[in-house]
Structure formats: C-alpha cells, structure tokens
Design a protein around this nucleic acid. Structure first.
Lengths: 346, 346
DNA sequence: GAAATCCTGAGGTACGTAAATCAAAATTTG
DNA sequence: CAAATTTTGATTTACGTACCTCAGGATTTC
C-alpha cells in the first residue's frame, strides 16, 4: 500500500497539520520537528498523490501559447494542434489560451510576453525570435518563476526551461547528406552539380541553422556540389515561385533544390511549370497537404518533417512537469526529425 | 465551472444517488428517470472527472506485459523500457507486471496468455507471434473483456485493440527506396547491382513484411537491382557473421546489404573483416550501441529504427484509454519509422 | 515572572466521485 | 385494496491531499 500523509504523521509522531506544514513549506515548524517529519517521509518513500492534491486544490494549469499569425501550412497546422489541445483541456486539468502575434516581429512578441507575465500563468510556450529584447523579456518571466518552453524555434542560452522542437542544424545536415547521396550518380557529372537553396529569411534562426548544417555537410562530404546564393522567398508563395522560376531559367544546370523554409507551395508551382524535362532533386521541409502530394507525385524527393502535434503535446507535458517541479523524461520529449520518402508516408 | 454530479442532480430534479446509478449503470432506475438524468448530462456537457473517480475507487490499472526473453539489443532495450515504466508506475496509478516467455514459441505465448487471462488484469500487452493458436488465445482474452495491445509485432485481423509498432511493409519499402537511390550511381554500372538481404527468420511476420516491402520497391522502381536469396541468420551473431562473410566471398559484386533483422553485431563484424576495400552500402534496422557506432564509422549507411520507449509508453496510454472506454488519439499513437543517417543521430 | 511570540495538535471542510445503507415513496401484482 | 415489489431520496463514508481555525502548550523576550 502506498504511504499517505496519515502514515507520515503516525511514524513521525506528529499531527497531520504538521505534516502538511512541512510538505507544503508552510511556516511554523521547529527544525527538529521538521527533521522528524522529513525522516519519516524518506523512510516511507512517500510521494504525494498528484491527482488527489490537484483535486483538493481544484487546480487547473493555466498555460498560454504565443503563436505567430503566420499563414503557411505549418503554422496553421501548429495552431490547429494547439486548438486541439484546448479542446481536450478540460479533461486534462489545463486551461490553455492562445495569443496571436504578428510574425517576424520581436517587439510584438515582447509585448505579448509582458502581458502574459502580468497574468502569472502556470506556464508559457512561445515560438521564439532570436533577439536580445526577447531574451530579456524571457528572463523577466523566468525571474517571476513562470515555466517557459520555446516551441519550434528556440532561444538558446536563455532562461527558457525547455525547447520543444527539432535540432535544426542536424536537420540541415541530414538534408545535405541526402542531397549529396541522391545526387552522386545519375545527376552529377565529373564537373559536379549545382544546388539551389530556398529559404524564408536568413533573419530566422531555424533557417540559418538548417543552412549551416546543410552547407557544412556538402562542403565536407560532397565538395563537388556547388551551392548557389540563397534565395530568400520570405515564405511567400508568389515570391518563392518567382525566385525559383528565375533561378531555374538562369542556371540550366541546377541539379538539386533544398527548400528549408515554408515556401513550398510556390516552389512546387515553379517546378510544375518548369515541366518534366527539368526534374531537379528536391528536398523540402514540413509535411503538408501540398508537399505530401508533391512527394507522392515525385515532384519532391524527400521531406524532412517536425510533427507539430508532438511538439504541442510535449510542450504541455513539460510545462505541467515544470509547474509541479517534476523531472522531465528527456527521451520522451526529444522531438525527432522525420524523414519521409514516398514509401513511408503515413 | 465544470459541471459535477451535483449539478446533474439539481437539473434533473433527482438525487445524487440516482445520478450515480445512471452514471455507473447500476440497476434500479426507471427509464423515464434515466432519460431525465441523461438529458441533464448532455445538456450540461458533463464529463466525469477521471482523477476524482479513480481516487474514489482507489483504483490502480493492473497491466501485464508479455515479452520474449530474446537476447538481442532491441529486445533487451524493450525490456528496459518496460522496467522503466514499472518504476514510474506508482505515480501513474498503474501496476505493471512483466512476464517473460521463450522467444519464437507460440505454445509458450499461449500458455502465458491463458495464465494472464485467469488474473483478469486491466490490460495486456504482448509481442505477438502470428499463429492460429495465439489468435485463438487472444480471442478468449478479448471475450473476457480484457483490453489487448500487440507490441512490436502485430497479430492482424485479430481481436487485439491496438498495435503499438511500426508498419513493417512501409519500413521495407523505405529501405528499398533508400537502397535504390543510394546505389544508383557510383556503385551501379549498366549491368545493375547485386544486393544481399540478411534476415532473422522468414517465420517471423515483421521480417517477412520488411522483405516484402523491400522487394516490391526494388522490383518496381529499380529493376536492375538484383536481390540474392535471403540469408536467415536467426538473429544469431555468429551465424549471421558466417553467412555474410560467406556471401561476400562468393559474390564479389555485392553492392548493398539490407539487414532487416537483429543480426547486426554479426553483420558488422563480417563487414569489418572484409575490410575497407569492399564497402557495400548497408542499411540496417534498430539503433543500438553497435549499429550506432557502425553508422558513425561509416560501416552502416542508414538505420531504420523503431523507438522502444515510445512503443511502451504508447501501449500503456492505449491500455489505459481502453480500460476507461476512452478514445485513442491516433496521431499521437502512431509509431513512426525513424531514419537515421550519421548526420541526425540523436 | 509576566507578556509576547512561536509551535503544535485537534478538528473540520473541501475537491468530485464511488459506493453503501436505509427509509420513504411510487408502482405493480394478486 | 392490501401486499409485494420496484424505484428513489437522503445521508454517510471513503479516497488522499489542501487549507483553515482555534486552542493550548512551549519558548523566547523584556
């Protein structure tokens, strides 16, 4: 039988009230008495029954998710997953609120964080923008004792408690490795191959990191693959399409394209317009309706994906654990880089 | 505020006892009254507070995991993960027991299932062997109302409630696709390429399915890749090593090896002995200490992996949900095929 | 040594549900 | 219509913890 507070009281020879005072750090206990109680706790191996405690407190974890109001499929999917969590929240003793902020806007994010700080929620998850003022705002939240998880995009070396997202350098390396291997052979002659990279913006950390990983692997392992200057399509379909079309026109020898941002709709349109004759090898990020279709059709060769649902659920689990001062199961919370070929589409 | 049983009683104009009778399907309620209560329940959108209910019942979910006493790294890892779950079980209101059975032995598995049936646990997870007698035993458990999850290896078209494992046909297809793509080029001349397949046993369903997926993709998409007759190493290091060494000796032109079973230690030794001159492209299953090292060293090119920890945790979540008659979040419980290159090793 | 402060015990209520008892009311049966 | 039966209400206890009050004992302070 699991030990309860009553057992502690009996063993320590004190009253229930005193046990309660010790357990919940309330004042009014002499250190000798506190010692007796603590000994009883450890000797019994007592662990507080969280479910009962939460019931008694009639506690609900109030979490805030700050999400950029981006209109690409991935962010829309992320929103959806958070809304799904909101729907399930009543049965999970959570009360999740979504705060939308304009994308790529550090100032707006800081304002949102400040507003959230005033409400003192039980935890905050946000898609970070790597800027000093954001870091400072995060520190203020941390000092206020509010657990904090970065989502999708990290804020390294900051006061955040956890990052629920993929390792973007590893993702870039993986893309580079796949690109190098897939290109070696039919698409590459003795002079090497040319690869184009389509990004959203080099101001965003994840994009920078992916490019960094990609370039490193290509430079070291596939030296005869040549990377063209990065196309920054700002994750905008029309702009991305124009840039890719233009690049394909100007460089007849493009053998591969790495799309590391969210501009895939434009990319796919450009590729379709270019026709079947010019079929470069394409590696993209994020499995959405359009990339999935393109993968099935053979327009895209591989998709690296992060599962937004997993990220959201992981963020919630971690925030709960942090709010309760519990340890986090690292292996469970590591967000993996999914590699999809058309053969393992779920 | 979330509605409680008291609210239902008030709205329906009945007593708490009657609400309890309706909620828990106890007898002694006229259908008119039952109707009033049910109306109140739906109109209030009442959902039973599981935590409170479990507290009141002082309920613990008793689960049994039946695992083969196999000595390969994957099964050892699986055992470890279940033991980890056992360690956490007290705080999760679960009481997990592990039953070891001899591997590849349908009779022993059936006996174990029968024994478990007698104890009437709240749920059972087991690594299935695809045999009629196992199917029959599973049916008896199902008829006794015991939730059942197959782990790692499935028992399709049976009475099991859920399968916590990967789609092995898709895994085989993915391996085939990677093999075909990686081979096309430097390792393949106009006459095509030869590929060897190392399996544990063709009697095991997962191995059959992986081979099926692999062969299908190779046949359709890479017709000039030729697959040698399957080597059945029975997941035994020494035997696997001997078979691979022998195959490499006899077929000087082996360009690729697909290891779809658990005989990787032997495979790696054979490859190391063959030396750096003969470096076939190698794709293996399950990320273990040895495959991880081989991947880092470039002896293995890609590893397909199923995360045992995820499988165990998923099985427990599903068993809990089934025991409570709750729906399962399919997206959360889908076990994914991880693809590891040396660039995305965790 | 009295007054003030600090510690501790005893007891209760609450959280939302389960489960039981017993009496009263309603309904059916003969 | 009375007796037997079924249905319902009222009330209680329990699960394990949190949190509150109040009284009285133990210490400290002046």
């Amino acid at each position: 039988m699991k030990p309860t507070v009553h057992d502690i009281a009996k063993i320590a020879g004190v009253s229930l009230a005193t046990v309660d005072r010790v357990l919940n750090g309330r004042p009014g206990v002499r250190s000798v008495t506190r010692g007796k109680v603590e000994d009883a706790i450890t000797s019994l191996g007592y662990v507080r029954d969280l479910a009962a405690a939460n019931l008694a407190k009639s506690r609900t974890y109030s979490f805030v998710f700050i999400l950029p109001a981006n209109d690409n499929s991935f962010m829309i999917g992320l929103h959806e997953e958070v809304r799904g969590a909101v729907a399930r929240s009543s049965s999970e003793r959570t009360d999740i609120r979504i705060v939308d902020v304009p994308p790529f806007d550090p100032g707006a994010l800081v304002t949102a964080l400040e507003t959230v700080l005033a409400e003192k929620p039980a935890g905050v998850a946000f898609v970070a923008i790597d800027a000093p003022e954001v870091r400072a705002a995060a520190r203020r939240l941390s000092e206020a004792g509010i657990p904090m998880v970065t989502l999708v995009s990290d804020l390294p070396d900051s006061s955040r408690d956890h990052y629920a997202g993929i390792d973007n350098i590893a993702a870039g390396r993986t893309a580079g490795s796949l690109m190098g291997r897939f290109l070696s052979g039919p698409l590459m002659d003795e002079r090497g191959a040319t690869v184009a990279v389509l990004a959203g913006s080099m101001l965003v950390r994840d994009h920078r990191e992916r490019l960094e990983g990609f370039s490193t692997v290509i430079a070291h392992a596939y030296p005869n693959v040549h990377i063209l200057p990065v196309l920054e399509g700002r994750d905008d379909p029309a702009l991305s399409e124009a840039m890719v079309s233009e690049a394909l026109r100007r460089n007849a020898d493009i053998a591969g394209i790495y799309s590391l941002g969210a501009g895939n709709r434009g990319l796919i349109r450009a590729l379709q317009k270019a026709g079947a004759v010019r079929r470069p090898l394409v590696i993209a990020h994020e499995l959405t309706a359009s990339t999935r279709a393109a993968l099935a059709d053979g327009v895209i060769d591989a998709v690296l994906n992060q599962d937004a649902g997993h990220e959201v659920r992981s963020a919630i689990r971690v925030l709960k654990a942090k709010a309760d001062g519990l340890p986090v199961l690292a292996a469970q919370e590591r967000i993996r880089i999914d590699i999809f070929l058309k053969d393992n589409l779920p």
